[in-house]
């Protein structure tokens, strides 16, 4: 049932501009039972450079899992999601949208763009931590991720 018993750590790309949310997420994923490396992109442009191995990221690994905020500087999260899901190499990587938006319109639209899951960010840091723990537990321990 664990995907990563094969040895190589799981590469997670976290696309998030809030310093506090980055720290909480890193903290939660460090506690996960499955070995993982979290790469952080602080804006949409940096995320696309990482994913398409451009600019400062020519040697970036193809992530096994992506956590994506929707409201980002430079390039919007919806645009990034659309680019990922229409790309042959990146299209199969699970993308978990983690955002503060609770609008039903955003939720439906994001699923139509083939986001794998939509999670709203709780305002309370303790509840946020619990949500990220649950993401880590499900996606790292239970789900079989597509490995390259």
């Amino acid at each position: 049932m664990t995907p990563a018993s094969s040895g190589a750590p799981i590469d997670v790309l976290l696309v998030e501009d809030s310093r506090e949310d980055v720290e909480l997420t890193l903290h939660a994923l460090q506690a996960a039972k499955i070995r993982n490396r979290v790469h952080v992109a602080r804006d949409g442009e940096d995320a696309l450079d990482f994913l398409f191995q451009r600019g400062p990221h020519t040697k970036a690994p193809t992530p096994d899992l992506i956590l994506l905020d929707l409201n980002l500087p430079k390039v919007d999260g919806r645009e990034i999601l659309a680019q990922i899901k229409s790309d042959d190499r990146l299209g199969r990587i699970p993308v978990i949208v983690v955002t503060s938006s609770q609008a039903e319109e955003d939720i439906a639209k994001t699923y139509r763009l083939h986001a794998n899951a939509y999670v709203t960010k709780p305002i309370d840091p303790a509840v946020f931590l619990r949500a990220v723990n649950a993401i880590g537990q499900f996606w790292l321990e239970i789900v079989r991720l597509p490995r390259p």
Binding site: M1, P94, A134, F138, W139, V143
Partner: peptide, 29 residues
């Protein structure tokens, strides 16, 4: 949206369904 393998072991199967429930019903929108 996600790919989960069914464990043969009964207890593990229940654990897997419960984590699906926990993530998709309690955490996900």
């Amino acid at each position: 949206n996600a790919y989960v393998t069914k464990p043969v072991d009964l207890e593990q199967f229940l654990t897997v369904v419960k984590s699906i429930e926990q993530f998709w019903l309690e955490i996900v929108k």
